[in-house]
């Protein structure tokens, strides 16, 4: 009763990194309330080691529903399970990562449960005295921070922006319990059938999950020049991002678009090359920890919000950076 619940996500039996980040959030909330942190895993063939990892990273209890019929995310089925468990256990708060899954499941379940939900929070804390969850999120393109609460409905629900907090360090000595949950026949919604997956051919490293993002824009002049950004990204272990301009020109797929009509990211480092920095693009990178801009135009707006602005020709500067990174990488290995 009144625990903090954090939803863990898995793909093909592997728990996603965002779920460990989320446990850190949950741990802080549970500690400030003096309650337990429960991790809910719905999936199939999740290894025992992965489940132990959830405990090592902060969970007190792991609820596992392991069944072949829930190996893939289907909103209605997952929502049926979540709603049933919430009604049964009455948690204080339910949080999920603001991923494609979290941002689909949580609004559906919140309606069914009859409670409020705040999207894409970057800060969560407990209000003293009331136990209300203070949910802070960027809005209007990151230009304002809104703090929202759900005073009269329980549980309180929020999705949390990926990369907005690091996972707790692994602590193998932590103790926790594991509880298996049965799938009920009525949980399964037959109206949606998952037929399979197709990988993004332009790279398996999604921008919203990357620690470093190297992005290119119109300044690249043509699509083939994205290879320069790809090379830079390879040396940095980074994901490749793009401005809307570059995507609209067909230089790279929409999955890479950063900004108001693309993805909002919070990497440790964002590098924008040949990107002028429209209001919309900047909205997508405001919560990046560090920003480096490379643009020959000294008046490009991106320079105004960068920690390091390089005013220079990207075709000259980036190859030198790549060379230096290669050298450095060789030293490390």
């Amino acid at each position: 009763m009144h625990d903090i619940w954090a939803l863990a996500e898995q793909h093909e039996g592997v728990i996603k990194q965002v779920s460990f980040e989320l446990l850190h959030r949950g741990r802080l909330l549970a500690d400030s309330l003096g309650v337990r942190l429960v991790s809910l895993v719905i999936g199939h063939s999740v290894s025992s080691a992965s489940l132990d990892e959830l405990i090592a990273r902060g969970a007190d209890e792991v609820l596992v529903l392991d069944d072949e019929r829930v190996s893939d995310f289907v909103c209605e089925t997952f929502s049926n399970i979540l709603v049933r468990l919430v009604r049964e256990h009455r948690p204080h708060t339910v949080i999920a990562a603001a991923t494609s899954t979290g941002r689909t499941l949580m609004p559906h379940a919140a309606i069914k449960i009859g409670t409020g939900l705040t999207a894409d929070c970057t800060e969560l804390r407990i209000e003293e005295g009331t136990g209300n969850l203070l949910q802070t999120r960027p809005a209007i393109g990151g230009n304002i921070m809104a703090t929202i609460k759900t005073p009269h409905h329980r549980p309180q629900m929020a999705t949390v922006r990926p990369k907005s907090m690091l996972p707790l360090p692994r602590d193998a000595s932590r103790k926790g319990s594991r509880v298996n949950i049965e799938l009920h026949l009525e949980d399964i919604d037959e109206r949606v059938k998952v037929q399979g997956y197709r990988r993004d051919p332009s790279g398996a490293n999604p921008v919203e999950e990357a620690d470093i993002v190297a992005a290119g824009g119109r300044g690249l002049k043509k699509g083939e020049n994205f290879t320069l950004i790809q090379e830079l990204a390879d040396e940095l272990g980074a994901a490749v991002g793009a401005s809307r301009d570059a995507v609209d020109r067909g230089w790279i797929g929409y999955a890479h678009q950063i900004g108001l009509s693309g993805k909002t990211i919070s990497p440790k480092l964002y590098i924008g090359a040949g990107i002028s920095g429209s209001v919309q693009h900047l909205a997508g990178i405001k919560t990046a920890e560090n920003i480096i801009s490379i643009n020959s135009d000294p008046h490009a707006p991106i320079h105004q919000i960068a920690d390091l602005s390089i005013v220079g020709d990207l075709f000259t500067v980036i190859p030198i950076v790549i060379r230096k990174l290669r050298q450095k990488n060789r030293e490390v290995r």
Partner: peptide, 10 residues
């Protein structure tokens, strides 16, 4: 996040 999920919906 993994790419594209193919679904059929009623």
């Amino acid at each position: 996040e993994e790419g594209y999920q193919q679904v059929a919906v009623q």
